[in-house]
Write a protein that binds this DNA or RNA. Sequence first.
RNA 1: GCGAGAGUGGCGGAACUGGUAGACGCGCUGGACUUAGGAUCCAGUUCUGGCGACAGAGUGGGAGUUCAAGUCUCCCCUCUCGCACCA
Length: 872
Amino acid sequence: MDEQYDPDIIEHRWQNYWEKEGLMKVTEAPGKKKYYLLEMFPYPSGKIHMGHVRNYTIGDVVARYKRMRGFNVLHPMGWDAFGMPAENAAIANNTHPAKWTYENIDNMRTQLKQMGFSYDWDRELATCQPEYYRWEQWLFLKMYHKKMVYRKESFVNWCETCQTVLANEQVEAGLCWRCGKQVRQKKLAQWFFRITDYVQDLLDYCDKLSGWPEKVITMQKNWIGRSTGAQIRFPIENPSENMQKEIPVFTTRPDTVFGATFMVLAPEHPLVTKLSKDTDQEAAIAEFVDRMALQDRSARVIESYEKEGVFTGKYCINPMTGYRMPIFTANFALMEYGTGAVMSVPAHDQRDFEFAQKYGLNIIVVVNAPNQDLTAESLTEAYTGEGIMINSDRFNGITNIEAQEKISAYLEKKGLGKKTINYRLRDWGISRQRYWGAPIPIIHCPSCGIVPVPENELPVLLPEDADLLEGGKSPLPALASFKNTTCPLCGAPAQRETDTMDTFVESSWYFERYCSPRCNTAMFDKSAVDYWMPVDQYIGGVEHAILHLLYSRYFTRVLNDLSLVNFKEPFTRLLTQGMVCKETLSCPEHGYLFPDEVISDGENRRCRKCNMPVTVGRVEKMSKSKKNVIDPHVLLEKYGADTTRLFCLFAAPPERDLEWSEQGVEGGYRFINRVWRFAYAIMDEIQDVKAFNGSPDELEGEFKTIYKKTHQTIQKVTDDIEERLHFNTAISAIMELVNALYGMESFQNPQETEKTEKETKVLRFAMETICLLLSPVVPHVAEALWYALGHRQSILLTSWPSYKEDALTKEELVIVVQVNGKLRSRLHVSVDTDEKDIKKQALEDEKVLKFIGEKPVKKIIVVKNKLVNIAT
RNA sequence: GCGAGAGUGGCGGAACUGGUAGACGCGCUGGACUUAGGAUCCAGUUCUGGCGACAGAGUGGGAGUUCAAGUCUCCCCUCUCGCACCA
């Protein structure tokens, strides 16, 4: 072996070797335990960033570890390749999204390979390939026929100037990000997946996902947002001909219905305009509705902490009290939740209270607080607590909790309403008025209406000859060669749907596709999916805790209902890794600075451009906008893949945020060198012996200690990886072992000590163990040293080491002696010394006696093999 | 506002079911080897007092349970993340 550790040489050598030998390739092996390890696939943005490096390093350690434990490990990688950035880049650089995307993929693949990740690259897929999305279209049709998909009108953010829809993140404070003009809500017919059909099942299974972080489960539950209550119908006073006669509302507080004094409808509610027609309020309402349409939802929420509403000019009747309730429309009512209408009970809902105060509406108290006498006049805020019913006719005197049930039952009996469960989750709108996505396989025929593309005509190819338009407008509607077609039913000229699918659709089933990525007769080969799925361990960022994971769970249920898979939950265990963070640097003149725009001279840091002192800001998530980023490429050049991997794993446990530290990286590099130097120093000596495998009793002195410590390290590292995925403590255990080896007398003073053959074998055992334990973390170094030890089979194919129980036991140990809980002395005793003896020794101890003094001993607690506590 | 998580040396972080607080790494200090070392090796490093053995204090703050609390209970403070006019 070389005396010097040279990451550049060994990383190339072993990456080439693994590739040439096909060591990462995997096929189904019935009878062999499988393990499916998946990391969230990246969007091909151009370069990998530290977040990817961390995510994929964590995954790779587990994959390599599980392989050594004898599992048949599926560890694939691919590209979430559709999406808007490709369009934007294409417009900006006057290129084509496909070209841009594929070039990025090539670049990123190279970078991932340089990291030494153990992917089976034969399974690589990109979601923008027709071979991929054709099966998505196929599934869309299946779902269409099963009525799992439907079309309805829905609002989108629309920029009139750019003539395009905008994603929520492209709307900044209500304005278009490109042209700065007002964004308005426009109604378009769009496709929806009926995820709400599965809402209760998705919720129920949240509690069965024992391998998921609590946090993610909570987020999913909140997103689903189940609430129980009642639906109540309020008759409209003198409804006009063309109008519904009642307004249904959803409420979680049916107990307060006697206190409902007005009605609020969402501005988009179809009744709003109808009600105000021919009243004095018509103009005011029109103005208000128009103004609200200009605001996108998020802006409306932020700007309108102030409640604002307009009277429609009409009334409805409280079915329980006969109260004549004015009907308002207001900015805080959401069309998407419940029925888009709110029965307002100002006495018991803070929002309604504020609204009533502002518009001088009547307040009726119906739940009295314990030991108080609430009145409309004395209320300064809504009372939302529990209490006894008042002003509620036959329900007076009972608790409001009881009243919830009774009033619901009464409403139901009288046909005025019913108990209901309402969910916040809405159906999944998948239409995108965008070019770079999978076309929705539908044809619009003037005479037959909506016609699905016949299965044998799939895929509906996304035309690659489209010219992208300034502003992001999709070229598809204007592309005659794509849009114009014939109706599959009647043969008449017809037009293709020009919307594409949300990119979350692709990522909702890619993990199944990986099982048989080249299958060209189906979405996937059923037997392959049966073998590999579900994913045993999924790893990715928390930012996908809700949408991606929920959609994937939903899709799996759809596939299950279509008998394509035989399970419901795709991911058994989930790990959400923390963010990679770094301090920000900024200068008064140039704002945020990249690390290489800063000159450090000693303590001081200055801006390279203006030489002003640099302000060191707080530690935040690495982001291009804050410029606190480190390019993994630079790390690879300077330290190599192994150091980069080691640092990512060592600096923090995976679920926590990782704070970037150049010195931490140096430390990692130093450790690898330390291992290398040790190996080099003893290599000749241990070259031709076999690793010791006997009982520790055959050894003595420091070799016995090292032998045992090696076994203890195996145990510690195995537990840390297996149970908790805490690689930081696993690595520190290996460091301890290396430190112990360095500290050996025979290593420090080799000329004064002579080793027996057994002792040399112990060294070999320790060295081999270090290689094996390190191999998932720093695979190139481990492989290189393994080879140097004389092995001619890859370390990848070697089993994970096991430890001997008898090597873990300690014969002598230190017992801590406390007096009143404070550490006072230590006893060295042999294992399993009986309690009496220990007590005796403790009480005879000089230091202990000093602290007991004259006081009588009240109690002595002995924890076996651990401590003695003497209470006085 | 609601929900979740976290607060431990100069720093990143250890400490499984209550049982030696500070593993491991970084930084710092000293020494060795050196023409030199930002290389490497060795030693030290929670704070306060003392040359020292040692003593006292100490896991955001305050109470409590216990022989024993970073860990359990209650109250408070701070930070991070999610959700947020959801009827």
